[in-house]
Simulated assay, not measured.
Amino acid sequence: MPNIRNVDEPIILLGNGRSGTTLMTGVFNKYLGLQSIGETTNLIFGVFRSIECSIPYCGNPAYHDETVRDIAVEKVRQLMVDLFPSDEKLWFQKPIMLPQIKTTFSSESEFFSWYWDTLYKIFPRAKVIFILRNPVDVLNSYQKRWNWPVEGAAKDHMRLNKLLLHPKANVTYGFRFEDLMDDPQAVLSSLCNNLDIPFQESMLSAFRENHAPNPKCDTQEVDKQKIISQEYMSILDSVCERYLLNKYEV
């Protein structure tokens, strides 16, 4: 986990819930010399946004927009160091899905631009990776896990995929859950190569464990014709094209 020397240099995993992010946390947990923490989305972006929006109204005229953002960067980094101290050389986090503060922006495009600006301002040396999974499998798993309506989840998943297409997105590596399960060593070796870290055999031991299993319950399969729109698939196809991944057929 972070320390004062490497807090601005994490490995960052993006993705939707139920897409294999917990498995990947387990993979990095097995990596010697690396500490991993879980879902940091609201911790990072929520604290930053609260400082950014609150300080200008606290009565100190010395604070202008860029000064406030610099303060927010400092506080978020210090919070990570204080909450998750470690002397390991490498660290990993997964700010998956979209932060709750997305609703404080006037438009989706404004939020997307802010998201990438903020992420790289806090973590300028970060290496960002992402994982995709067949949307039907993701939403079926989501429904089995929480038994909640999936319409809202589908919209959020589509927004995250759009985020990956934003011009400011600077992503080191993207991969598919299905490819990871078919050939873990090949995908992880390629991933490590792109992260400029050596592949370790110990990473493969994570696949012998059960990660975030769904409860045994009876739920209806997702109506993919109703839930997964043409727009959703068009955006997903564009993500696959941009990052040279095989497209999904649903």
Rank of each mutant, 00 (worst) to 15 (best):
Y115N: 03
Y115S: 02
Y115Q: 04
W116Q: 01
D117P: 00
T118R: 05
L119S: 05
L119H: 06
Y120E: 00
Y120V: 00
K121P: 00
K121T: 05
F123H: 02
P124T: 02
R125K: 15
R125A: 09
A126C: 15
I129E: 03
L132S: 12
R133W: 06
N134P: 05
N134S: 09
P135K: 08
P135Q: 11
V136T: 14
V138Y: 07
V138R: 09
N140V: 00
N140H: 12
S141G: 09
S141D: 02
S141P: 04
Y142G: 03
Q143I: 01
Q143M: 07
R145K: 15
R145H: 15
N147H: 07
W148M: 08
P149A: 04
P149L: 03
V150C: 13
G152I: 00
A153D: 06
A154F: 01
A154D: 06
D156C: 04
D156L: 12
H157L: 06
R159S: 12
L160N: 11
L160Y: 10
N161S: 08
N161E: 02
K162E: 15
L163V: 04
L163S: 03
L163G: 08
L164T: 00
H166Y: 10
H166S: 04
N170P: 00
V171Y: 09
V171H: 03
Y173H: 14
Y173L: 04
Y173D: 01
G174A: 11
G174H: 11
E178N: 09
E178L: 08
M181C: 06
M181A: 04
D182L: 12
D183K: 08
P184S: 13
Q185W: 04
A186E: 09
V187R: 10
S189E: 14
S190L: 06
C192T: 05
N194Q: 14
D196F: 08
D196S: 14
D196Q: 14
I197S: 09
I197G: 10
P198D: 10
P198G: 06
